[in-house]
Design a binder for these strands. Sequence first.
DNA 1: CCCAATTTGTTCGTATGTATC
DNA 2: AGATACATACGAACAAATTGG
Lengths: 256, 256
Amino acid sequence: MPPATIRSETRLSRPQKVAEAIKQWVMDEGLQPGHRLPSETELIRRFAMAKGTIREAIRLLEAQGLVKSRTGPGGGVFVHQVSEGRAAALLGNYVYFANPTIDDIYQLRSALEPELAESLAGRLSPAQLAELEGTLAESAPPAASAEGEAARHAASLRFHAELAALSENPLLRFVIRFLAELLSEVTVTRGLHSPTDPELWTSGLAYQRRLIEALRDGDGPRARALMAAHMATAHGLMHTREAAVTRRFLPEGNRR
Amino acid sequence: MPPATIRSETRLSRPQKVAEAIKQWVMDEGLQPGHRLPSETELIRRFAMAKGTIREAIRLLEAQGLVKSRTGPGGGVFVHQVSEGRAAALLGNYVYFANPTIDDIYQLRSALEPELAESLAGRLSPAQLAELEGTLAESAPPAASAEGEAARHAASLRFHAELAALSENPLLRFVIRFLAELLSEVTVTRGLHSPTDPELWTSGLAYQRRLIEALRDGDGPRARALMAAHMATAHGLMHTREAAVTRRFLPEGNRR
DNA sequence: CCCAATTTGTTCGTATGTATC
DNA sequence: AGATACATACGAACAAATTGG
């Protein structure tokens, strides 16, 4: 009779084990961003492993955005706060395979953007409102230039990203900005905004102007309604029948 | 006059460059999960770099869940689809630092779960509905045992995860499951469900039963309303004044 | 059951680059 | 400028795992 071994699915390699141990150690120790990890030679001594193995473990952590290395005296490996951009890039790798449709993206946007709008009503400073109006102005060019359309589209999405940045909810902030970025890539890589874009742009601009007013007035429900309507028209104008999103891996450099 | 060098923020190390190059190459080549990358020795030849450097690059990709290595003949480095679990773990590292509150989590849940419920109404097979009822039954223990409460709570969150799994929208699926998992960790690590939990559990069970009915009947608006009400009470019962979430890094083994 | 081939995994020694004092 | 402390990179050898004969 076979011994019925319960295969634990993934036997970890040595670098993986070391990376996990370091992670655990950082948590137990309560290390914060900026704190230094033991030096390579020290880690080699503690784990009794070769330099290469230790270095691979560090790379594992580095790819997750958890540590950053610096050379020179006073250098070493430091705990690093995972940036929003890095997190978005990592999640982007997943989305690349998940292959969502435009409808999928808008299903989330339609649920979250109005919620964001309402939660921000009456809570923005005059400076922040002015900032938003500034972005809006950027997206209103004098004439309809040929390649300016894509730029306008990008500016519009930037408006949404900036709005999200004003939320105190880090999760809401992250998801909305991620969706905007994702949508931006989609509309850029495919020519999804060509024919109906002027229409979308005009209506979008009007909505955004009225939205800022509602935010200034502190009228939450109106802000929500305006954003919901904006989402509905934007989605509708993006004739997205079956358009599947084939997305690129995001580069690693911490843009943003 | 200084040459006004535009510091590109992050000069990439050699392994990082190699990892990026490989990523790009995979995309250009249109490689799919399961496809094999060039062998280590081949990569060493192509990039004209040392073995250690190449291996570190592979680790960079491995940490992102993009590749998997196997030893032996027919082995090598293979393109790998980023799993939902891996993506969640990676995003978890970001959330660990972002430190959201319970309110933050529920702001998203309250917006997304009702949307999910409505979109699922009338689209589930009898088998799927039965499956959901099964999970529900599991979370209905005979008596209120002491430590059974945490288990019940977990089962309730599992119900939401299963519901999300039925959505055809990969983004909605991912975010909702991630939030449920996040909330689950919070309530487990802290004793956030002790006093009012029986109440939450009873009301939750009732809501979920009625929700399944609405889903079966294909009554989208009712499903949405039920879920919205459920979220509101669940949120309310979790007296979460200021409770900040201090979350653990997730282990790397692909659980799920 | 063992042997051989293949491919990743790990080790060690050495040398180079880089930032600080 | 030079010494120091650290990560980074190289190269050669050996070990372990997996597959097929």
